[in-house]
Design a protein around this nucleic acid. Structure first.
Lengths: 336, 336
DNA sequence: TGACGTTATGTTAGCGCTAACATACACGGG
DNA sequence: CCCGTGTATGTTAGCGCTAACATAACGTCA
């Protein structure tokens, strides 16, 4: 028995129903069904009702893959982050999704895991899906990645930094200045033995450079730099590797909180204000957690969600300012 | 001057080059170029080299939208989570991405923000992109969402719970039993006035029910339940609304840590072990942060990343066990 | 009254690719 | 010498939809 015998009544089809199946059932042409989906106001109310009924009967779900090919619009944006787990970038992804999803855009998410080769592969994979824009944390790590993006002819938004020669648009803050601000604050507090702990990705490195340059400029000895794994556990034991240190700038709040846990075990954490701390600790990211621990965490607040929603806006509007500095704030609490 | 004048040499084209453009340049047919992209071992080395050169010259990026339409394979999976920011679900998304991205699958991410109507819209939006599977946290909130998924004829994985009547596959743990385990532990510790704080989403509610039932079964008075906002700040002041309480189960670690911050301000937090705590606190999720604060956080550890990678595996293999209980562990530390 | 806008619907072609099926040629064994 | 079996490449049709351009049936107003 061949399968082209149709079911007696509207039984579940073996394959997803198409526009023309709906059209046939409603006694109209395919384009009219297409209009009901996309521009219902152009279809007469009675026709529309008949078509909507047919769509319900068949359980029609539009095929955006075909629609995208025909219209050359995918209504999707590619988003590339180093990692999404336990990370400050989750806020940025949330911020941009919240702006884009209500407009009918889908987010195609890719993670580079701080690996340049994987980043290039993910960039190529994203671009083959023809997103209408790419939003990424940072800038391409390789020349190849940069070339791919420049040739894509779609809005590209680099975030979480202010690259000197952006590909297209930027929504971020000055990581170097953040390092400078932290150094200034610690020096003014009278700290003498300063150190930086955290990763060595481009943004953390910019923070380190600002931190170091400012400390040197103020006449103090060059600060130490401890490069740590991406998990906070490494920072718990970091204190043992920094003898004599009296102030630490951590590349992010997780490292800062881990470092504080190590200080607590060493009996070097006070419940009092920053001035009472044997070792000052300053983080970056302003996690909610930093307000909940004791002593509360002094940190650079960076508006991750605003970066996301600004990036989303930049993908939608081609004109106007394409270089947005969202800034940061040094939030003074009890740890440093 | 009209723009259809081609550049003298391989300049950047106005539109993205297609397979046939590459084919023409290499002097072969389109299908041979397609083979170089997908099954290079079927193409003679010299031909392949010529085509690869042509692809490089033109900066060819395959169009997976067209490929997906022609082959009826999109190589994408839809992922629906309540939220990605500051959340335990980020680990799950990371876990599944890490498994799927190397296999050429893209992740289309959508957030429901704990809103049933938005969940349905996101589900419909995901399905119109014809993903090869859907992975979601929890189960559809509405009958409509459930119907959509059942008719999609693709693998559907529900996670972070063990639904009684799953649509297809499941990778999760028993939230009810988690509540029971916490209650048993607190009762054995001699706690009398118990309370539950957290959200009222389906999974938190299952935890609450297990918690409550076990406490009632052990002869104690019915525990109180405080429904809080999704941010931890609300839990900081929760203690004032629970007079006389001596043990709290928080629906997640963030709430637990927030509640502990409130206890600290009230002078009700000790540095000692669980037995020394005036109020025991137990969380769920096992955030790294819980190990770093003081007192350390007793929590239910739930393997969010394993849920993600298991879910990914379930989307890829259609046969075999489709109902995986990843379990949980009560991790005893100092808070309760 | 007929040229002209307006509203509702249809026709045609094609988006860029791949499945399925040719075709062409080389090679080796009976 | 012809047939079978690879190996390499090509032809054809079509995936499900939409852009762009008809067409038809109605007013409406000078």
């Amino acid at each position: 028995m061949s399968s082209d015998l149709t079911e007696p009544e509207a039984g579940p089809a073996d394959v997803a129903p198409t526009l023309s199946a709906v059209a046939k059932r409603a006694g109209v042409s395919a384009i009219t069904v297409s209009r009901v989906v996309r521009t219902p106001e152009l279809v007469a109310p009675e026709t529309r009702a008949r078509i909507e009924q047919a769509m319900r009967d068949l359980g029609y779900v539009p095929n955006l893959v075909a629609g995208a090919l025909a219209s050359a619009r995918t209504n999707s944006v590619g988003v590339l982050v180093p990692t999404i787990a336990n990370s400050i970038f989750a806020d940025t992804v949330q911020g941009l999704s919240d702006k884009l999803e209500p407009l009918g855009f889908s987010v195609i998410l890719a993670q580079s895991r701080y690996d340049a080769a994987r980043e290039d592969r993910m960039l190529a994979a994203l671009l083959s899906r023809r997103p209408e824009a790419i939003i990424m944390v940072g800038s391409p790590a390789t020349e190849e990645g940069s070339r791919l993006l420049r040739h894509a002819r779609i809005p590209i938004v680099e975030t979480w930094d202010l690259p000197a020669m952006p590909i297209d648009a930027v929504a971020g803050f000055d990581n170097y200045k953040a390092g400078v601000a932290v150094a200034k604050h610690l020096v003014a507090q009278g700290r003498k033995q300063l150190a930086f702990i955290g990763g060595d990705d481009p943004r953390a490195t910019r923070r380190w450079l600002g931190f170091k340059d400012e400390i040197l400029a103020s006449g103090l000895a060059e600060p130490r730099r401890l490069i740590l794994d991406r998990n906070a556990s490494g920072s718990v034991v970091a204190h043992a590797r920094l003898p004599g240190v009296d102030a630490v700038f951590a590349a992010n709040d997780a490292h800062a909180i881990g470092f504080m846990a190590g200080l607590r075990r060493a009996g070097l954490l006070r419940e009092g204000p920053a001035s009472a701390q044997p070792v000052a600790v300053i983080g970056l990211g302003d996690l909610e957690m930093g307000r909940l621990i004791s002593p509360t965490l002094t940190t650079i607040s960076v508006h991750g969600d605003a970066i996301g929603s600004t990036a989303a806006t930049l993908t939608l509007e081609r004109g106007g300012e394409r270089h947005v500095d969202l800034g940061f704030e040094l939030v003074l609490r009890d740890s440093g």
